[in-house]
């Protein structure tokens, strides 16, 4: 378990944010950590489930940051499903 900085934004928001996650977090947790800085602040809360996208591909919700091989400070996007 180690602190792991990422660049991220929630789809539809206007700015890229610095998001500290943990390398043991799974993508569900990562999506929440990104969403909390946008959803209900600037992006409408629709209640829909969220997914993490990296290099254009959706990552499985149970995959951890460590397993994903994303390097620190790479960019991910989080978006509502559908």
């Amino acid at each position: 378990m180690a602190l792991f900085p990422l660049q991220a934004n929630f789809r539809g928001d206007f700015v890229v944010l610095l998001i500290p996650v943990d390398d043991g977090d799974d993508m569900t947790a990562v999506a929440e950590k990104v969403a909390q800085h946008s959803i209900g602040l600037r992006v409408v809360d629709t209640g829909a489930p969220k997914r993490v996208y990296y290099n254009g591909k959706e990552l499985p919700p149970r995959m951890t940051v460590k397993e994903s091989g994303i390097p620190p400070m790479d960019w991910i996007e989080v978006a509502y499903v559908g």
Partner: peptide, 10 residues
């Protein structure tokens, strides 16, 4: 509170 940031932008 929801109109304030809690992290830095890149």
């Amino acid at each position: 509170g929801k109109t304030y940031p809690a992290t830095l932008p890149i």
